[in-house]
Design a protein around this nucleic acid. Sequence first.
DNA 1: CTGAAAGCGCTAACAA
DNA 2: TTGTTAGCGCTTTCAG
Lengths: 344, 344
Amino acid sequence: MARKTGDTPGKARSVTMSTIAQMAGVTQATVSRALNHPEVVSPDTLERIRQAIEATGYVPNQLAGALASSKSRMVAAVVPSITNMVYSALIHHFIELVRDAGYQTILVESGFSAEEEEALVSSLISRRPDGILLTGVHHSNRCRSQLLSAGLPVVEIWDLTESPIDICVGFSHHDAGVAVAQFAHDSGYPTAAVVSAGDERALRRKTAFCKRFGALGHPAPLEVLFDGPASLERGRIALSKLLDLGLSGGVIFCSSDLLAHGLLIEAQARGLSVPGDFGVIGFGDQDYATATIPPLTTVRVDRSDLGNRAADALLSRIRNNSPENRSIDVGFEIVARDTTQTAD
Amino acid sequence: MARKTGDTPGKARSVTMSTIAQMAGVTQATVSRALNHPEVVSPDTLERIRQAIEATGYVPNQLAGALASSKSRMVAAVVPSITNMVYSALIHHFIELVRDAGYQTILVESGFSAEEEEALVSSLISRRPDGILLTGVHHSNRCRSQLLSAGLPVVEIWDLTESPIDICVGFSHHDAGVAVAQFAHDSGYPTAAVVSAGDERALRRKTAFCKRFGALGHPAPLEVLFDGPASLERGRIALSKLLDLGLSGGVIFCSSDLLAHGLLIEAQARGLSVPGDFGVIGFGDQDYATATIPPLTTVRVDRSDLGNRAADALLSRIRNNSPENRSIDVGFEIVARDTTQTAD
DNA sequence: CTGAAAGCGCTAACAA
DNA sequence: TTGTTAGCGCTTTCAG
């Protein structure tokens, strides 16, 4: 069954290392060496093997390799949603970095559900990845223990905790909420409102914001909470609701830039001025935050940095470096643009 | 492997099917049956095995299973970019559907590069997925032949071709461009302009649009082309450039809703009216297309339908080797909202 | 319904 | 530098 390089349709007799070995006149083990440790194989042999591979279009079976070596050269990543820019940009960087280190990423969505995540993690573990990335630090107990007993490197991102499963890299959502409250206060806003999507971390920011803003001597903020994900539409709806609730003046802290952008659009539609009639603060500093009218005041988290650090941390753990730092804080920064007034 | 506090590691020795078998007093083969064909195992045995699994927290090694059965229960998906909503929404549906069928998806980004894609596909094949999804229909020859000789089900999406590698599901970008030109003409626009990101398919739409619009007796459209991806910012820039080029009136066909939205914002910033001063047509009908001011006229492609169909097609190919239909056209639809004038 | 046995394709000692 | 020899953990006949 001599096979050519051409694209012959039909069932190709599977060519394995042994096929290559035979063609090159060596044993299968030598082919394995040629592929994984070429430096210990003679140039001559190497060349014959190379030719055989070329001629057959042989592609190694990593399943077998992984089974034999207990190294799958694969990492798994669990994110709440891939359609959410906040996570996708971060994961993009992560994927890129681990790929450069020779790892492929298997990406799955948990849809913000802990049970879903548990099932996912379980089936991911069965594929024996070399490491795993999780979004957030709240996981079911079974999930934690499975991960722990699988003994694989785990990095939890986008949040911080005292007791990570393995390591975590993120920032404090509580602190972010507090910082924004302080910022609102310092900017001279007497009142505030909050708009949030139904995301546990966003809610934590909201709570911290409200608490601190109150502690600073202000009335409790009006609240508009959504159950599902954020959208431009919901941002518009939020402003309408807030107005119905009697909002006048003050600053509105949104759980995402998307929501904030929606607010801005609704304000425009109603002929309201920002920051004249009220201030708006977003969260995330998406790339479009500078392109809105007016440019959006928001909280910046360096997502590419976070993705990179997460990749670095996971990679170094995979290489068995002991975790120098189990908890990495990447921080955040309030970027004051034009949707908020400047201090009196 | 340093261990920290938490649940006891117990037996550091990895637990396999044999471990379970011993505990349940059966052979390893029976455990395999219990897991994969419970209907042929006695309820009694099943229960003992279940308990052993429960007690140990055993997780099957799918690597070994896949190697032995030549079924990895895994599909691979190659998209240009995961941060691009156009693809991520689609892939979201795809992932969900194949997951319900028991397949996990390994997602990789090709970054719009054919060489990159070739390398990616090669390393994906080495993981022996049961099927593979590719975005677009233009691939390097080596890529095609590798896929062909690997003999695995392939579905190409988001475009159509006479000669798919295996099957393709998408729509004609050429026809979309033509349809928009016709729409612009019918709406009474005497002139047009195009704004496009550096995406091969977008360029094909643009070309078809320009050609047909010219054939309808109109002057050649002004063009603003970007090299990389679209963004709100670039939409704003595009309008500025167009104005610099002397644009006045007419309709502007954008390669994406994002660009169109940017144009709308820039128009607002300049006090220009849409559709009063000029019309705008987007592409994609993203969810925010109804939330812009004014709501965006755009081209709608049912991405969830596309994702679902792609999943169905791939799944059915994986199950039985009969490609009923090698080319599936999901079509598109022009959604006239308020950024374009209605016919005279 | 269950056991025994033969691999799946590869890695990794250990010899030679 | 290369061959020999064991497995990796599981699926799958084939018997019984």
